[in-house]
Simulated scan of single mutants.
Amino acid sequence: MAPRAYWKGSLKLSLVTCPIALYPASTQAEKTHFHQINTKTGHRLKQQMVDEQSGRVVDKGRKGRGYELSKGRYVEIDENELDAVKLESTHTIEIDDFVPAEDIDERYLDKPYYVVPNGKAGADAFVVIRDAMKRKDKVALARVVLSNREHVIALKPLGKGLLGTTLRYPYELRDEDDYFDDIPSPRVSKDMVDLAAHILDTKASKFDPHKFKDKYENALKALVKRKAAGKTIEVPEEKEEESNVIDLMDALKQSLGRKRVGKATKGRKRATAHPRRKRRAA
């Protein structure tokens, strides 16, 4: 059964409009989640809102929104007052621009959504917009309001539908210079770079997300299963960290040698599995 739509509205390209729905393309449902419990009774705990000055529990009806103007001084904003800043993009995703996909800096990519036509009435318009984008190999940039916030969203064809990815605003990204400026620029030999590039070639493959294995998640599920079965959980001793003082060229050569040994072993296995037939004596 398909999940409920996260957002419903219209997709608009100039004068062409069609009803659409957005569904989250990612989920955390399969991850192992823990609840806070009372270790004495085994009962689940509930969180309460507490006034930081008086320490008293605050009823849900007294909970509101406040923006901190200065330390400890807030201006209260009512829910109905937020309606004053509602935008057209609350119910309509209007396409503003079309850009090449490679122009979008990956740091701006945020959350993915599946975009589908909402009902058969606007399916024709949806398919026309989707196929026009396929033909031009372009990504659409539009605006949408999600969780009371306006986001820029990038739309591109994906199978029979569209993939919508919300984008971060420039003010949400940190300046890379604050982190990269202190990286030294040592002179390294061309031989080292060539050797490293050769190692990269030996590890070349195609992107396949099915190869990704969440080792921590699998270990966590195994731990919970063992604990539920009444078995003792033993914490392994921490291994001593190896020294980072190495000869770079020697490490590169050893890395390449290890790869060659692995290939040679596979070759010997194949040769053993399919030995050549001896020729009969004349």
Results as ranks from 00 to 15, higher is better:
163 L>S: 03
27 T>P: 08
207 F>H: 13
255 S>F: 04
212 F>V: 13
193 V>E: 00
66 G>N: 06
26 S>M: 15
81 E>L: 08
58 V>H: 12
180 F>W: 05
249 M>N: 11
200 L>D: 09
59 D>F: 03
250 D>Q: 13
142 A>P: 03
22 L>H: 01
143 R>H: 13
123 A>Q: 14
211 K>G: 07
271 A>E: 05
10 S>P: 01
146 L>V: 06
255 S>M: 12
62 R>N: 13
61 G>D: 11
278 K>P: 00
241 E>W: 12
179 Y>A: 09
41 T>K: 06
206 K>G: 11
260 R>F: 11
46 K>P: 04
143 R>F: 10
163 L>K: 06
110 D>H: 14
116 V>D: 06
117 P>G: 05
229 A>D: 12
193 V>R: 06
136 K>C: 04
208 D>I: 05
127 V>L: 13
64 G>Y: 12
113 Y>H: 05
36 Q>C: 05
57 V>D: 02
243 S>W: 08
167 L>V: 03
16 V>I: 05
231 K>Q: 08
267 G>Y: 10
101 A>N: 11
272 T>F: 07
62 R>M: 09
201 D>T: 11
160 K>H: 03
242 E>M: 14
90 T>W: 01
200 L>R: 15
134 K>H: 04
225 K>D: 14
170 P>F: 01
258 R>M: 10
279 R>V: 10
217 E>H: 10
215 K>Y: 07
59 D>P: 03
29 A>V: 09
76 E>W: 13
88 E>V: 13
103 D>P: 03
252 L>R: 10
114 Y>V: 05
176 E>F: 04
59 D>T: 03
155 L>W: 01
246 I>N: 10
169 Y>D: 11
131 D>A: 08
115 V>C: 04
45 L>M: 14
193 V>T: 07
162 L>D: 01
77 I>S: 03
239 K>R: 13
257 G>A: 13
254 Q>M: 12
120 K>D: 15
99 V>Q: 08
74 Y>P: 01
98 F>T: 01
192 M>R: 03
139 V>Q: 00
232 T>P: 09
80 N>Y: 15
238 E>R: 13
33 H>F: 12
253 K>D: 00
57 V>M: 03
96 D>R: 12
127 V>M: 14
229 A>V: 05
48 Q>E: 11
11 L>W: 01
17 T>G: 06
102 E>K: 14
19 P>T: 12
36 Q>S: 04
103 D>H: 12
136 K>I: 11
85 V>K: 04
240 E>V: 14
73 R>F: 10
274 H>P: 00
188 V>H: 08
207 F>Y: 14
250 D>H: 06
187 R>P: 12
47 Q>D: 03
68 E>D: 02
60 K>G: 00
182 D>K: 08
217 E>F: 05
10 S>L: 13
126 F>W: 00
199 I>Y: 02
112 P>D: 00
269 K>I: 05
12 K>I: 11
69 L>W: 02
86 K>L: 10
